[in-house]
Amino acid sequence: MSRSEKAIFTNMCMIYDDNGRVLVQDRVNSNWPGVTFPGGHVEKGEPFSHSVIREVYEETGLTIKSPVLCGVKQFQTKDDERYVVLFYKTNQFGGELKPSKEGNVFWIQRDELCHYKLANDFDEMVKVFELENLSEFYYHKEGGHWHVNLF
């Protein structure tokens, strides 16, 4: 029995400042619309940390530095691929904020996040970004329904 499996790697980054704000993206993607943090796919052979720096720049115009890996989201796709989202966070950034084809980007106070239409289960994902005792967001299917587990 093989111990390998097909996988898709992506990333997401919580960018925050000293004034209690976080950078969010209002995604226009019909597969997962709503407010979330910016991020995207890891290219074949690309280091994970480079991918998050590249994706944040492409989607926001900001250049981030020293992204810290703070958690993981994972689930199996309908094609039985493991879909992995690497969660990063940083408060080191520069550049001029600009929207992309992925959606508009803007700063909000962190405590106002709940007042926006969030992408599905994003409120649970934020816990992994922020709580030291959590490192994983995991979907599993049971009885034909998807369930969220936080570890």
Results as ranks from 00 to 15, higher is better:
residue 53 I to T: 09
residue 8 I to S: 05
residue 52 V to A: 01
residue 57 Y to T: 06
residue 129 F to R: 04
residue 45 G to H: 01
residue 120 N to D: 14
residue 1 M to Q: 09
residue 131 L to K: 15
residue 101 K to T: 14
residue 48 F to D: 04
residue 108 I to Y: 03
residue 48 F to Y: 08
residue 105 V to I: 07
residue 31 N to R: 12
residue 109 Q to G: 05
residue 120 N to G: 08
residue 104 N to P: 04
residue 42 V to L: 04
residue 89 K to E: 13
residue 138 Y to N: 07
residue 33 P to W: 04
residue 89 K to R: 15
residue 136 E to C: 14
residue 90 T to P: 08
residue 45 G to S: 03
residue 35 V to S: 02
residue 144 G to W: 05
residue 44 K to M: 06
residue 146 W to M: 11
residue 90 T to E: 10
residue 44 K to S: 11
residue 74 Q to T: 08
residue 112 E to L: 05
residue 88 Y to G: 01
residue 28 V to L: 13
residue 18 D to R: 10
residue 45 G to K: 01
residue 26 D to K: 12
residue 72 V to F: 12
residue 5 E to Y: 12
residue 83 Y to A: 13
residue 47 P to A: 08
residue 47 P to G: 03
residue 105 V to P: 00
residue 97 L to G: 11
residue 85 V to D: 04
residue 48 F to K: 05
residue 101 K to Q: 15
residue 149 N to R: 15
residue 137 F to H: 06
residue 57 Y to N: 12
residue 68 V to Q: 14
residue 143 G to Q: 12
residue 39 G to V: 02
residue 80 D to F: 13
residue 141 K to W: 06
residue 53 I to Q: 11
residue 66 S to H: 15
residue 32 W to L: 05
residue 34 G to D: 05
residue 108 I to A: 04
residue 21 R to L: 02
residue 34 G to Y: 03
residue 84 V to C: 08
residue 140 H to P: 01
residue 33 P to F: 05
residue 101 K to I: 15
residue 147 H to W: 10
residue 111 D to P: 01
residue 30 S to L: 08
residue 31 N to A: 10
residue 127 K to E: 13
residue 80 D to A: 10
residue 1 M to C: 08
residue 112 E to H: 09
residue 87 F to S: 00
residue 60 T to I: 03
residue 35 V to N: 02
residue 46 E to I: 00
residue 39 G to F: 00
residue 14 M to N: 04
residue 120 N to P: 06
residue 69 L to N: 07
residue 110 R to Q: 07
residue 73 K to G: 12
residue 5 E to V: 09
residue 67 P to L: 00
residue 103 G to I: 05
residue 50 H to D: 14
residue 38 P to L: 02
residue 69 L to I: 09
residue 51 S to A: 13
residue 76 Q to S: 11
residue 147 H to G: 03
residue 117 K to W: 05
residue 33 P to T: 07
residue 115 H to P: 02
residue 119 A to Q: 06
residue 146 W to S: 14
residue 35 V to I: 09
residue 66 S to G: 11
residue 70 C to L: 07
residue 145 H to Y: 10
residue 62 L to A: 04
residue 38 P to H: 01
residue 80 D to S: 12
residue 97 L to N: 11
residue 41 H to W: 10
residue 146 W to C: 05
residue 90 T to L: 06
residue 71 G to P: 01
residue 33 P to N: 06
residue 47 P to W: 04
residue 121 D to T: 14
residue 49 S to H: 09
residue 73 K to L: 08
residue 81 E to S: 05
residue 139 Y to H: 13
residue 141 K to P: 06
residue 132 E to F: 11
residue 8 I to N: 09
residue 52 V to M: 03
residue 121 D to S: 11
residue 113 L to P: 01
residue 110 R to V: 03
residue 75 F to E: 13
residue 5 E to R: 10
residue 145 H to E: 10
residue 10 T to P: 00
residue 137 F to K: 01
residue 58 E to G: 06
residue 10 T to D: 08
residue 37 F to K: 00
residue 132 E to A: 15
residue 69 L to Q: 11
residue 149 N to C: 15
residue 92 Q to I: 09
residue 96 E to H: 15
residue 7 A to M: 13
residue 65 K to Q: 15
residue 151 F to E: 12
residue 49 S to R: 08
residue 30 S to R: 13
